[in-house]
């Protein structure tokens, strides 16, 4: 669904991302793990064309839905209005907006409430709904999707993403939260200083693997 070959992004003389190559197949979840400034968000933005890559190529087989890291949502509008806009723009049935909000776990009472009155966690769920809205089998690029969610919320969203993955969606997720990655992802790309240093396959999604990931993260700091 996604193939990346030698992708790089340079700002002046500084390379924020260099020689990134990997592939994500249908029904696979891949994690991008790294410290702040490691190049995770740069990589995702290059995939979407928000940043112009300085080198390399991106091959997208399907359309990608994107969840940016902590954007400020239009406060005057309601979650439903936002999702309806996406459906109208794509000529999708309006009911898909409601289904996505339902799936995100956002309480129905908040659907018509102005976004400025929604808590950070609720807004994060709206963003999740934004990403979920659309056909099942697609590519999801998620930049810190668990940001602002409590433990229960994180568990719910992870189950939701797992269900999407089982339905054939491919997921690329950036996060600092190692246990979340271990629970969802099949592979983790460890990124540091703009380079993908290691690719770690996760087989049993256990605590041992979480510890192993944390050790690798510390090693590459």
């Amino acid at each position: 669904m996604l193939r990346v070959e030698g992708l790089g992004k340079r700002y002046g003389k500084h390379w924020a991302l260099r020689r990134a190559s990997f592939e994500i197949r249908r029904g696979e979840a891949v994690g991008l793990l790294g410290a702040n400034g490691a190049g995770k968000s740069t990589l995702i933005k290059c995939l979407l064309g928000l940043l112009r890559p300085s080198e390399g190529q991106v091959h997208l087989a399907v359309e990608a839905s994107y969840l940016p890291e902590q954007p400020q949502l239009p406060g005057a509008l309601s979650p439903l209005a936002m999702l309806r806009f996406k459906c109208a723009a794509r000529n999708w049935p309006e009911e898909w907006a409601e289904s996505a909000l339902q799936a995100s776990g956002l309480a129905q009472a908040a659907w018509e409430r102005p976004l400025r009155q929604c808590s950070k966690g609720m807004q994060q769920r709206v963003l999740i709904a934004w990403t979920l809205c659309g056909p099942d089998s697609k590519l999801m690029l998620l930049d810190e999707p668990m940001s602002g969610l409590d433990a229960l919320g994180r568990a719910e969203i992870l189950s939701l993403l797992q269900a999407r993955k089982d339905a054939g969606a491919a997921i690329l997720m950036c996060s600092h939260i190692v246990p979340d990655m271990v629970r969802l992802c099949d592979r983790v790309l460890l990124i540091s200083g703009g380079l993908i240093r290691e690719e770690i396959a996760l087989s049993d999604h256990s605590l041992v693997e979480a510890e192993m990931l944390e050790e690798s993260l510390v090693r590459w700091q």
Binding site: Y66, A89, R90
Partner: peptide, 17 residues
């Protein structure tokens, strides 16, 4: 200004537009 500064345009462009 907020659209560009606070990444709302990223969200809108990802529709895609």
């Amino acid at each position: 200004a907020r659209d560009i500064e606070q990444k709302i345009c990223h969200l809108l462009l990802s529709v895609p537009l």
